[in-house]
Write a protein that binds this DNA or RNA. Structure first.
Lengths: 123, 123
DNA sequence: GGGCGGATGATAATGGATTCTCACTTATCG
DNA sequence: CGATAAGTGAGAATCCATTATCATCCGCCC
């Protein structure tokens, strides 16, 4: 059950600069020569999410991406050129203050869009 | 082409406290006694978006919602009880400062989650 | 080696949002 | 009124992410 593929998958996530989607993981693993099906990717992702190792992040109009769980509060940057997600450390002051009066805020998400360093040198 | 339904739809959007989805508009219009199909809703939404009257906003794991375009910079609150979206005026200081070094930020989105005023009195 | 159970891959199935199709209605204008 | 064009509704079709199915494979114990 604790197969090698699970560890390889986790390594892919750990080495990524931000959360990755099932198909991104799939592509990466196959490119690395690992023979694996998309179903297994989803199986491992589900399992690791339930066991608290991975943490899903939903992006608007995109697949769910997964990152290592339990890290410091942070947000995300989405490159509109290469469509990759990156972690953005920290937060912004007064984020929750913009909520309408009498609303209770339990969590929040900040998403930045633009060009990552790779993409702006190329473009 | 400038049918009455188009104006009714726009009124539904104008009167909403935040962006609304195609099905929310559909439900509302039918409840108001308007006989309309979901296809027409999507047709109008597409047309008004292209003509710059409406502005789509994508929410993580939810349908696209539409609001009146061209208003002041603002963000959104999503009530996790009734699943409605609300406009949240203003912004937070230093939002873009959390981007990784050398990244170019072209836009950003802040999403707050929690209970709207209606839902917290009920629950 | 044989057999058993869990893991796996290919692919079919599902679910939900959106778009397409097409027959039918409505508007326009002479 | 009559004819043509535009608008519309119902439902089929599509698209995509995710899940289910099931035959096969692999490791392990006897």
């Amino acid at each position: 059950m604790t197969s090698g593929k699970r560890e390889i998958l986790l390594d892919v996530v750990r080495r990524s600069p931000g959360p990755v989607s099932a198909t991104e993981i799939w592509d990466r693993m196959r490119r690395d020569g690992v023979r694996i099906g998309i179903a297994t990717i989803y199986r491992i992702l589900k399992h690791e999410t339930e066991s608290g190792t991975l943490e899903p992040t939903e992006f608007p109009g995109a697949q769910t991406r997964y990152g290592i769980a339990g890290r410091e509060h942070h947000h995300h940057f989405l490159c509109t050129s290469c469509d990759r997600a990156f972690d953005a450390p920290g937060c912004a002051d007064g984020v929750q203050d913009i909520a309408p009066p009498r609303f209770t805020v339990t969590s929040h998400a900040i998403m930045l869009f633009g060009q990552c360093d790779d993409c702006q040198t190329i473009q």
